[in-house]
Design a protein around this nucleic acid. Structure first.
Length: 547
RNA sequence: UGGGCUAUGGCCAAGAGGUUAAGGCACCGGACUUUGACUCCGGGAUCGAAGGUUCAAAUCCUUCUAGCCCAGCCA
């Protein structure tokens, strides 16, 4: 793995100059949802930077806002990070530092750098000004230090109503950087915290808490996404004015975005809460748990992240890039099995009725170690509907057509000679004859077939359900979700492709899979972490060209 | 239009004054093939725009343009 980007350069320089001996990083998720592919970049980047620079990596839950957090998310997040293979040195919680944070805040108060403000939330917003106009000072901005000490203690002791007062850093209401216009650093909130229970009724804000957390842990490089660039001056201010011993350095990188997919915890949360998907681990989502359930190996996600580098640009990566890496990881190590998604019955009229023969097939032609399997073949089989066309349109058509001969993979050559349609003209059955001399493995070479298609035996699989999930397209505009323009102006496609439910394969196994790649997961498996052990053989990427 | 950031082929991305601008994905040709998969061969950009500096610029300067982020007592 090549790591060569600006963050790596910065860290190397910090080590070369003697500023640090090693890199200590962290991943600081708020436990309010599941991790997704975007987080994978942050996790893997922080982890690999520490590892390659002789340091270590902490997992720290940024649980400073109890009303949005839940322990079920901390468990899920731990599982996902462990799955990714990013071992953390310490498992920590921001809430463990609440006492320390309180003292640091009091220090600011005593230094005259923080004050208790009685303005309402709405008034604070008005006083803050906007992008065009500078803010103006709160009338409470110049309280005496003594008053502030007393008031802040009162806040902590629960003497005031929720939302009635806040503690603000006294910085600069005229700053062109909105984050420096006296940011709120503590709010009153009587909420049960999953970790500290009812001990506190005031909670620190991110901008105040985060730099202190980093400094306490001795984080050397605090890697985060680009939207925090504007916060860096505040981050540095807090570290300096709170007189922290360790000076962490925040470095930002661009967020990962996937074209056509919903990424971003808050949006995925809407889909989950709204019942649009089966849960956070719905395989259509690009949550880590969803990808895992779909059979994507963690190693593929790592390589995918590395392959993208660490840009500050703002593009959208196509999901095909991930699929390519996934295929690269699976193609040699997994066995294959045929499955038919959209079945068309093929009757082999000159094959003995009632007979079933079992044919041997390699599980993976490129990896003999995976062995072989026996697959049934009888007078009636299912082929993929798109593998048949009435009249061969051109020389490029490599599948079945009338009077055209193809090989049924691992079986015989068949030639179609009759089409049966229903009242609507839809083809419901195709009749053909087979040539017994062409049996797989016989070495037959008199003539070449027009192509090779896969099949699933119909006698054995008569109970197969060929039910398709609907492609999930949500129109956030129609649902009047306020974030619509932030996602996609038109509509969102959760994932290109479909999820098949209960497909029965050639060997009678039940699979759920997607059509995007040719990989599949047995997600009904009782295994704890169903990993793909089969690749479903599909020519899914091929779109027949009509003439 | 205050501040911060970004801009290289359809997508991602190398490149940091000097041969014909890496590579991957996607796509299109072709070979091979018991899946049209896999593998192999071939195919495309003058670098957001306009000026300027230089013998020489994607790389330096200037001015534009476009996009992203910031006005939570969210993170």
């Amino acid at each position: 793995m090549e790591i060569n980007h600006f963050i790596n350069t910065i860290i190397e320089e910090d080590i070369r100059s003697g500023k640090h001996k090693r890199a200590i990083t962290r991943f600081p998720p708020e436990p309010n949802g599941f991790l997704h592919l975007g987080h994978a970049r942050a996790i893997i980047t922080n982890y690999s930077m520490a590892k390659t620079h002789n340091g270590y990596f902490n997992l720290r839950f940024d649980d400073t806002n109890p009303v949005k957090e839940d322990t079920i998310f901390v468990d899920a997040i731990k599982e996902d990070i462990a799955w990714l293979g990013c071992e953390w040195e310490n498992l920590l919680f921001a809430s463990d530092y609440f006492d320390e944070m309180y003292h640091r805040a009091m220090l600011l108060v005593k230094k005259g750098l923080a004050y208790v403000d009685d303005l309402t939330a709405e008034e604070i917003r008005e006083y803050r000004g906007d992008l065009k106009n500078v803010g103006k000072d709160s009338p409470y901005r110049n309280r005496t230090i003594e008053d502030n000490v007393q008031l802040f203690d009162g806040m902590m002791n629960g003497e005031y109503e929720d939302g009635s007062r806040v503690l603000r850093a006294k910085i600069d209401m005229q700053s062109p950087n909105m984050n420096l216009r006296d940011p709120v650093i503590y709010r009153i909130q009587r909420a049960y915290h999953h970790n500290t229970k009812d001990k506190w009724c005031i909670y620190p804000m991110y901008d105040f808490a985060h730099p202190i957390e980093d400094a306490i842990e001795g984080i050397t490089h605090s890697l985060c996404s680009l939207e925090f660039e504007d916060h860096r001056p505040l981050y540095d201010w807090v570290v300096k004015e709170c007189e922290m011993e360790n000076i962490p350095r925040q470095i930002e990188f661009g967020k990962l975005r996937i074209a056509g997919a919903v990424i971003g915890k808050r949006y995925i949360k809407q889909l989950v809460d709204g019942g649009h998907v089966m849960g956070w681990d719905d395989p259509r989502l690009i949550t880590l748990s969803g990808l895992r359930r779909r059979g994507v190996p963690a190693s593929a996600i790592r390589d995918f992240i590395y392959s993208l580098g660490l840009p500050k640009s703002q593009g959208e990566t196509e999901i095909e890039m991930l699929y390519t890496v996934v295929r690269d990881h699976l193609k040699l190590e997994t066995s294959r099995v045929n499955a038919v998604i959209d079945p068309l019955k093929l009757v082999i009229t000159n094959y003995e009725e009632g007979k079933v023969e079992y044919l041997e097939a390699e599980n993976n032609r490129e990896n003999e170690a995976l062995g072989t399997r026996m697959i049934p073949f009888s007078r009636e089989v299912y082929i993929e509907r798109e593998d048949f066309i009435e009249v061969k349109p051109n020389k490029k058509w490599k599948r079945l057509a009338m009077d055209v001969e193809v090989r049924l993979m691992h079986a015989y050559f068949v030639k179609a000679n009759k089409i049966i349609k229903d009242g609507n003209g839809k083809i419901i059955e195709v009749h053909c004859t087979y040539d017994p001399d062409t049996k797989s493995g016989s070495g037959f070479s008199e003539r070449k077939p027009n192509g090779n298609i896969h099949y699933v035996d119909a006698t054995i699989n008569q109970e197969a359900e060929f039910r398709l999930f609907e492609e999930l397209i949500l129109d956030f505009e129609d649902k009047e979700v306020p974030f619509s323009e932030k996602i996609n102006p038109n509509s969102m496609i959760i994932q290109q492709g479909f999820i098949e439910e209960s497909i029965i394969t050639e060997v009678g196994e039940r699979y759920q899979f997607t059509r995007n790649g040719y990989y599949a997961a047995d997600i009904d498996s009782t295994k704890e972490h169903p990993v793909f052990n089969r690749i479903v053989s599909l020519k899914s990427s091929y779109t027949p060209k009509t003439v």
